[in-house]
């Protein structure tokens, strides 16, 4: 019974393939005797660590996206600004960063073309509308990606919580059993003592 439940739980995953943590419905289904406790706890510990490892990776990915998105947004802002200039308007005077702490002035004539740095030493010229479209799609893709990551992070949090509750419950079960055993032992010893005088 416990086996099938565990398997069904283990097979279930979230949309991006992260497995669902098994829920311990009855501790007795997982640990039948106190000898199993250590093994089970170790098993749970391992699973928790795996989830935490994934959590860390996900946090790093989100941080990366958080770095990337303002860059795209900035470029998009600039493109949108250039778009507001039509051919008749005066050249704009821009102070741009030539290097760290060094700025230079430039007169920018109204333009219909912008050059986008695509990375890997490649720069391409785009008509302004094309650039806007490309950047907007990149930005929304990044946002989607981030929201997926956040969803995964939420999901991972839940699995870690489940595992922590599982661990606590198995541990508590062990404590209760230990106490019960001791009581039984004491009870039998008492019986033994009270038995001798009569026997």
């Amino acid at each position: 019974m416990a086996e099938t439940v565990a398997k069904k739980d283990a097979a279930a995953t979230n949309p991006r393939g992260i497995p669902v943590a098994p829920f311990v419905d009855r501790v007795e289904d997982y640990v039948t005797s106190r000898t199993d406790v250590e093994k089970t706890l170790k098993n749970f510990q391992e699973m928790t660590e795996k989830y935490q490892f994934m959590e860390q990776n996900m946090q790093r990915r989100i941080a990366g996206l958080n770095d990337k998105m303002p860059d795209i947004q900035k470029t998009l802002d600039t493109v949108l600004f250039l778009k507001t200039r039509n051919l008749g308007s005066d050249p704009i005077e821009a102070t741009f960063e030539l290097n760290d702490t060094l700025y230079a002035k430039a007169h920018v004539l109204p333009t219909e073309e912008v050059y986008l740095w695509l990375g890997a030493n490649v720069m391409l010229s785009y008509p302004i509308d094309g650039a806007e479209e490309l950047l907007s799609s990149k930005l929304s893709a990044a946002k989607l990606n981030k929201s997926n990551c956040e969803e995964d992070l939420d999901f991972l949090r839940e699995q870690i919580t489940t595992m922590e509750v599982n661990t606590a419950r198995v541990y508590n079960w062990d404590v209760t059993m230990k106490r019960k055993e001791r009581q039984e032992l004491e009870a039998s010893e008492d019986k033994g003592k009270s038995g001798t005088p009569n026997g």
């Binding site: 900035k74 470029t75 600039t78 600004f81 704009i92 005077e93 821009a94 102070t95 741009f96 700025y103």
Partner: peptide, 14 residues
Amino acid sequence: DMIQYKIGDSFISL
């Protein structure tokens, strides 16, 4: 007055 307004990474006189 012309104001240097930051758009993206550069300041533009507007």
